[in-house]
Amino acid sequence: MSAADQAAVMRDHPLRRWIRAYADSRLALAGLGLLVLIVAAAIAAPWLAPQNPYDLMQLDMLDGRLPPGSVSGDGELRYLLGTDAQGRDMLSAILYGLRISVVVGVAATLLALLVGMTLGLVAGYFGGRFDALLMRVVDIQLAFPSILTAMILLALFGQGIDKIIIALVASQWAYYARTTRSVAMVEADKAYIEAARLLGLSTLRIVFRHLLPNCLPPLMVVAALQVAAAIALEATLSFLGLGLPVTEPSLGLLIANGFQYLYSGRYWISLFPGLALLLTLLALNLVADQLRDVLNPRLRKS
């Protein structure tokens, strides 16, 4: 095979095609860039942030509620985005808050994906009573607003990052289960699976090597959207006081803490974390939107 042939094959490789199709939209590229920046900032927060906002030793309550640009009482630190009531540097708190958002969003989505996908695959491939039972549970789950499920679970468990992840997984796994099942059902009837069965391949091998790859594209779209949904839900729950502890405020809790100061014009405590949250969700939605167009040929723009 000549180099040119190889290049041609590469060019036609699905991944290649997807990347090219994705790059079609400048808006989607901008979203991706923004997302990369946000994730990088979240990962690098301990090195970027002027202060560790979760270390009570580093906070000084005498610096509480300072407007953006103020200098700390000991003259060592400039609070670019102001401070909250506890004397926490808002910029640092937002960077650390993004970290929580990203961790919660990704962890919850991956776990929910794992649980939902596994159940969905089994149900879709084997069908039968398990399928019927699972779909009943999925129906119940989807009939119930995710925010209510999560609220009740958090009221049960108490606060904490692990607990909020569990609550999010519990309220989102059903989406994956249903998506996977419907794709798996369609694929399971196709000729190549029939052929694989006739060849005597093990069920595990068929499911994971042949069925799963075909389920992935739609699942990726769902997952991309659900990361955004998970982050928004975590923020909402924290805002309602059901999410994370006060000493480790996530973006939602930072916004909630600023609520009472809004009326007296101390806008910065709520405004900046909200903007950070908005940008994160926007970047995720832009990416997810384009992914859907790219990975789902039926909906692709003509």
């Binding site: 955004a228 923020a235 909402t236 939602g252 600023g258 809004l262 709520s270 909200g274 969700l281 939605n285």
Partner: peptide, 25 residues
């Protein structure tokens, strides 16, 4: 369409606060 994506991304509770801040305060 761009507006609708922003609309999707706006955290409801934060928009609520901002509405209060702008229109009430």
């Amino acid at each position: 369409m761009a507006g609708s994506i922003v609309g999707f991304s706006l955290p409801t509770f934060w928009v609520g606060l901002m509405l209060i801040m702008v229109f009430s305060v």
